[in-house]
Computed example of a mutant assay.
Amino acid sequence: MAEPVYLRPTAFLDAPFGSLGKALRLAGSLTWFSAVELIERRGPARIVPVAEVDAELDGPGRAILARITAPRPPLVLGPRTVPLDTPQVMGILNVTPDSFSDAGAHHGDAAAAASAGIGMAAAGAAIIDVGGESTRPGARPIWEGDEAARVLPVIERLAGAGTAVSLDTRNAAVMAQGLKAGARLINDVSALTHDPRAAGIVADAGCPVVLMHHQGTPETMQDAPDYEDVLLDVYDWLAERIAAAEAAGIERSQIIVDPGIGFGKTLRHNLALMNGLALFHGLGCPLMLGASRKRMIGALDNEAPVGRRLGGSLALALAGAMQGAHLLRVHDVPETMQSIRVWRGMRDVALTL
């Protein structure tokens, strides 16, 4: 049996003018690509111009290319619709006492937490992602009752204010309660592997779900992460999780994928994923990137602490946007929105010249 071929869009363009037949639009985003890297696990990778790529592909390869170029439909989150033809920001709202990013600033005060979420929405975040269990490296699991008590009052307030709410949890009981409280999207860092009931909850709700790659558990994931080829291994793992979700009754159109920056990866792994991010469009699902304030930024900048990682967070967000990421999960919403608006303005001008 022939080795599978992976397709990574590359040679990106600001606009397709003058490139008829030589450039393709990337997953309905504001990025076009004029070449494809054909990758095999056991052979050398090759860069092929878009104009010649069809002749290089068999049926499965052409199916991957079709997924890469297909527009992603909007996310329908209750009364809110989030289009995916431009990068959208998901604001992070942790209500844990031990969040790595804010040391528990929103823990224990649902009204203040909801107010912070509403502020992020006012600044431009399309979705607010509420989490009540820390999954940072070394974190230990908590009782799902405590997790629910943290997130439900915040979700109810945000949903009541008309905000589109995502629930960041890996526990089925919390998912079920959060969806009743007004959450419209489930963001599961375990990709529905932690709780065997989770896939059924999501399927019954018919809501979108984020499947994030991880290796190990939060307690152990940074002990000794190891891959044969991190880019291809993460791609294959996510493909398997998509298939499992579909088998559980979740529509592929409701699945979002996240390569899981920092979850069971070294600095070298994270950089490889960022550089090869466009590969994941071959899965045919919207792509989410969560690199905000991650340790990789400190590792590249003299161990800068969490509070001094804004510049690196913006650099990674823009790198994601340039490779067609549909959702950017971030802590610093106003600053990220400004960077995306400037980037979008440059693209808009390129498209009108």
Rank of each mutant, 00 (worst) to 15 (best):
M1Y: 11
A2R: 13
L7V: 05
D14S: 12
A15R: 11
F17R: 09
S19N: 13
G21M: 06
L26W: 00
W32P: 00
W32F: 13
V36I: 11
E37S: 11
E37R: 10
R42K: 10
P44S: 15
P44G: 10
V50A: 01
E56F: 09
E56S: 14
L57I: 13
L57H: 08
G61L: 07
G61R: 06
G61D: 03
A63S: 11
A70I: 05
T86F: 12
V95Y: 04
P97V: 10
A103H: 14
A116P: 01
I118V: 13
A121G: 07
G124H: 02
V130M: 03
S134G: 09
R150Q: 15
V154D: 04
A161E: 11
T163A: 15
T169Q: 06
I186T: 04
S190R: 04
S190Q: 06
H194A: 13
D195A: 11
P208N: 14
P225W: 01
D226T: 13
V230Q: 02
Y235H: 13
A244G: 07
A245E: 02
G249N: 11
R252T: 07
V257S: 02
D258P: 01
G260T: 02
L267A: 09
R268V: 15
R268G: 15
L279W: 08
F280D: 05
P286L: 14
G290R: 01
L300H: 01
V306S: 12
L310Q: 05
S313L: 08
M322C: 15
G324D: 06
Q338G: 14
G345E: 08
